[in-house]
Design a protein around this nucleic acid. Structure first.
Lengths: 131, 131
DNA sequence: GGGAAAATTGACGTTTCCGTAAACGTTAAA
DNA sequence: TTTAACGTTTACGGAAACGTCAATTTTCCC
């Protein structure tokens, strides 16, 4: 019994706006059903929206995200397409791995900086105790 | 003997453009010395540029990056500033940890998709062999 | 010292990702 | 039934992060 959602259900659920969701549809990232004029979102649509928003948070552009979403519903009998997706997917994986490494580097540096600040702060507060 | 760089040295070194570097200066992220009219970049400037570009790749906005850069040269005698930086740094760390988790999730999903595609492809090619 | 190469400033253009508002139709609740 | 809330399309706007082009310096090299 796949659930149904209105556009504002989803907007609230994922803390975004209806304008944004309609914009994603304009770009072809979502294709909700219509009842009358109104958009009806399935669970599949909901999951796609979730993926889109996560992708955005991670700095991917919307056309990159659209391409990756398309990988999930390509024709599984087209050998050429399969090969292409595997190749592009490997590229994306390499890119993601680098991004993770970069983030871990930033993390380390921030931790060091934090420790440094903490030591300075400790000195200062001990100094204050002496008076 | 701290090295000196021209703007195009740095542009080439980090695969960006002089326009971009000047733009970062406009926003206050870099403050190179001048000799006559021209900009001269020190090693410190170079490292800052490297950090900026890495931050950009990771999806941080330039004003976020500027704030984080400022942490490296604040007044170490100002207890309030120290506390503030530690607090903000902790926030940033939490945010980075979440980003890493998200990226690892995307990574897993891409790997699964890749395996799925690979299996489909294997079936297809075995099918071809039979003929 | 003269000309090519490199750098500078200023202005405007572009792309991405939405926000906002107008003007209108639809649905639900009192 | 009416009225408030919700949804739709269309259009324009706007910030962020640069690209591009033109008009001037500035510098380097022979």
């Amino acid at each position: 019994m796949s659930k149904q959602y209105t556009i504002s259900d989803l907007a609230e659920m994922y803390d975004t706006t209806t304008r944004t969701i309609r914009y994603y549809e304009e770009l072809g990232l979502l294709q909700p059903k219509r009842i009358g004029g109104r958009r009806i979102y399935s669970d599949r649509d909901r999951v796609r929206l979730k993926l889109i928003l996560r992708g955005r948070r991670l700095g991917f552009r919307l056309d990159e995200i659209r391409e990756m979403l398309e990988w999930y519903d390509l024709d599984p009998t087209e050998v050429y397409q399969l090969r292409e997706v595997i190749r592009k997917g490997d590229e994306k994986l390499a890119q993601i791995d680098e991004q993770i490494r970069d983030l871990q580097a930033v993390r380390e540096e921030l931790l060091e900086l934090r420790d440094h600040m903490q030591r300075l702060l400790d000195e200062k507060t001990r100094e204050g105790e002496k008076s």
